[in-house]
Computed example of a mutant assay.
Amino acid sequence: MTKHKIYTMSFSKVYPHYINKAERKGRTKEEVDEIIRWLTGYSQEELEAQIEQQTDFENFFAQAPELNSSRTMIKGVICGVRVEEIEEPTMQEIRYMDKLIDELAKGKAMEKILRKQT
């Protein structure tokens, strides 16, 4: 079975689209970065290095220092598919990130996006 083409796509090619989507809705690059760091465990410097190295999505998630255990709390539909029902692990991680960026663009509070317990 061949891999989905997004796996071999450079994260650095999609990252500006995440920022543009957020900024069009009055959110910031810093918030996008915070979401990505929360999800993956990358530091800001490590995230910037991944972007500079043009790491593909598959390796971006495979090399993530510590995928956040609270990410399983992310529920909902992205691209017509429920994220919690995606069986392929890498695709699920990609869709988790897409869902979080969507929530940011829709104006959701960062505490809710980052699934902070109250």
Score class of each variant (00 low, 15 high):
Lys3Met: 09
Lys3Asp: 08
Lys3Gln: 13
Tyr7Trp: 12
Tyr7Thr: 01
Thr8Asp: 12
Met9Thr: 09
Ser10Asp: 10
Ser10Phe: 00
Ser10Ile: 00
Phe11Thr: 02
Phe11Trp: 01
Phe11Arg: 00
Ser12Leu: 00
Lys13Ala: 12
Tyr15Asn: 02
Tyr18Pro: 01
Ile19Cys: 08
Asn20Met: 11
Lys21Ser: 08
Ala22Glu: 07
Glu23Lys: 14
Arg24Gly: 07
Arg24Leu: 13
Lys25Glu: 10
Lys25Cys: 04
Gly26His: 07
Arg27Met: 08
Lys29Pro: 05
Glu30Val: 14
Val32Cys: 07
Glu34Phe: 06
Glu34Val: 10
Leu39Thr: 10
Leu39Val: 13
Leu39Asp: 02
Thr40Tyr: 03
Gly41Phe: 07
Gln44Glu: 14
Glu45Tyr: 12
Glu45Leu: 11
Leu47Lys: 03
Glu48Asp: 15
Ile51Tyr: 08
Ile51Pro: 04
Gln53Leu: 15
Gln53Phe: 11
Gln54Thr: 11
Thr55Pro: 02
Thr55Trp: 00
Asp56Arg: 02
Asp56Phe: 02
Asp56Glu: 04
Phe57Asp: 01
Phe57Gln: 04
Glu58Thr: 02
Phe60Ala: 06
Phe60Tyr: 11
Phe60Cys: 06
Ala62Met: 10
Ala62Gln: 09
Gln63Asn: 15
Gln63Tyr: 13
Ala64Lys: 04
Ala64Met: 09
Glu66Asn: 15
Glu66Phe: 10
Asn68Gly: 08
Ser70Arg: 15
Ser70Leu: 15
Arg71Ser: 10
Thr72Asp: 11
Met73Val: 10
Met73Phe: 13
Lys75Ser: 14
Gly76Glu: 06
Gly76Phe: 09
Ile78Lys: 07
Cys79Pro: 00
Gly80Lys: 12
Arg82Gln: 14
Arg82Thr: 08
Val83Ser: 09
Glu85Val: 03
Ile86Asn: 02
Ile86Gln: 04
Ile86Met: 08
Glu88Pro: 00
Glu88Gln: 10
Pro89His: 05
Pro89Asp: 03
Thr90Arg: 04
Arg95Gly: 00
Arg95Lys: 14
Tyr96Ile: 01
Asp98Leu: 08
Asp98Glu: 11
Lys99Ser: 04
Lys99Asp: 01
Asp102Met: 06
Glu103Gly: 05
Ala105Tyr: 03
Lys108Gly: 01
Ala109Pro: 06
Ala109Ser: 09
Glu111Thr: 14
Glu111Ser: 15
Lys112Thr: 15
Lys112Arg: 13
Leu114Thr: 05
Arg115Gly: 05
Arg115Val: 09
Arg115Asn: 11
Lys116Thr: 13
